[in-house]
């Protein structure tokens, strides 16, 4: 699973960072982005989905078609 934050949609609510600080970084202005290339370790996938489900700006997306084989 890989996710991304759309910088044009993010308004700095910081819900994602509060829920999964392992996956997101937030700058001084509250703007969020994914750590690294946004790859989510299997153990964090549920919480990544939680972050998506709690973003009021619908700014976080799962990048489709990148599921690991199997």
């Amino acid at each position: 699973m890989r996710i991304t934050v759309d910088p044009l949609k993010c308004q700095g609510h910081a819900r994602c960072f509060a829920l999964v600080p392992e996956l997101f970084v937030v700058d001084d202005y509250g703007m969020s982005s994914v750590k690294g290339d946004g790859t989510v370790a299997p153990a964090l996938e549920d919480r990544a989905l939680l972050a998506i489900a709690n973003c009021p700006e619908f700014a976080i997306e799962e990048i489709a078609g990148e599921d690991p084989p199997g």
Binding site: Q11, H13, L50, A53, N54, C55, P56, E57, F58
Partner: peptide, 11 residues
């Protein structure tokens, strides 16, 4: 679990 509330506004 799913809570996209806008108590702090939106945009």
């Amino acid at each position: 679990a799913v809570n996209r509330h806008v108590a702090f506004g939106s945009g």
